[in-house]
């Protein structure tokens, strides 16, 4: 565990210095591109996943989670590939990270902060249990999911903030260039199935909700708090785009 941490610190240090030396004008300099190719072979977030595995073992592993979610352990991976979900005993449509918080509390432990790196690592590991499984979020599964999806869809196209932009302002124009960055096609590029991801520019593991907060801030919108109904709804909406494109869970992702 300690050597793992040290490895992580050293790696992120060397990566951030390398990025500082690379040109700042364009988002992906030649040096950045070379580094990206290298990282594809050896994603630094694999270490987060390993760390998450250790924490999850202490929580009682798949058996404990399956029991908490009241699903057959053999169907757990498939069930994980359907989050965010309505979990009746939690009373809301929730993300997998919130389920892990509740599991911690149920076992008499202190829950991790949704914004903490250990939580991102734990989330990455547990979501990776569903790697290679087709994303199967069902936005019509029940009334609660329908409401959450509708809220996500609304928020995605709602203009707000001091620049009057919505997510859709930019994300409806994939392939065009904004501030030297190519706008991603969220559905086709499996955004919903590839976060938590290692973000090269930040040298750290980032969750989908954290990534969305960065866009909000950059676009002049007030960033929504992690785990809020609104944020979960956006995750529902974005995950459904990936499902519509027949993607599978692929954790951890690697991003610029």
């Amino acid at each position: 565990m300690n050597s793992l941490l040290l490895k992580k610190v050293l790696l992120s240090f060397s990566l951030s210095t390398a990025l500082l030396l690379a040109g700042e004008q364009f988002s992906m300099s030649e040096a950045d591109k070379a580094m990206y190719e290298e990282l594809k072979e050896n994603n630094p977030a694999d270490m987060n996943v390993e760390e998450g595995m250790e924490i999850f073992e202490e929580l009682g592993d798949e058996a404990a989670l399956a029991n908490f979610l009241e699903v057959d352990e053999k169907k757990l991976a498939e069930y994980i590939a359907g989050f965010p979900r309505y979990v009746k005993k939690m009373g809301n449509v929730v993300g997998l990270d919130q389920v892990l918080q509740a599991l911690q509390v149920a076992q008499g432990q202190k829950k991790y902060d949704l914004s903490s790196e250990v939580m991102s690592s734990l989330l990455a590991y547990v979501k990776s249990l569903a790697n290679e499984v087709a994303i199967n979020i069902d936005v019509k599964a029940n009334k609660e999911m329908e409401i959450s999806f509708a809220l996500g869809e609304k928020l995605y196209s709602e203009v707000r903030g001091y620049r009057g932009l919505s997510c859709n302002s930019c994300h409806s124009l994939p392939g065009t260039i904004l501030r030297t960055q190519i706008l991603p096609e969220m559905g086709a590029q499996n955004t919903g199935g590839t976060w938590p991801a290692y973000r090269m520019t930040l040298s750290t593991l980032v969750t989908l909700q954290e990534r969305s907060r960065t866009c909000m801030r950059d676009a002049g919108q007030a960033p929504l708090p992690l785990g809020s109904k609104e944020m979960v709804a956006l995750e529902v909406y974005i995950t459904n785009l990936a499902k519509n494109n027949k993607h599978k869970v692929e954790i951890p992702g690697l991003k610029r």
Partner: peptide, 17 residues
């Protein structure tokens, strides 16, 4: 379990924005 996890309210943040 309804209180065992964080779900902050963001509706006011959206409204004010």
């Amino acid at each position: 379990m309804n209180k065992a996890y964080d779900m902050p309210d963001a509706s006011k943040i959206v409204k004010d924005d």
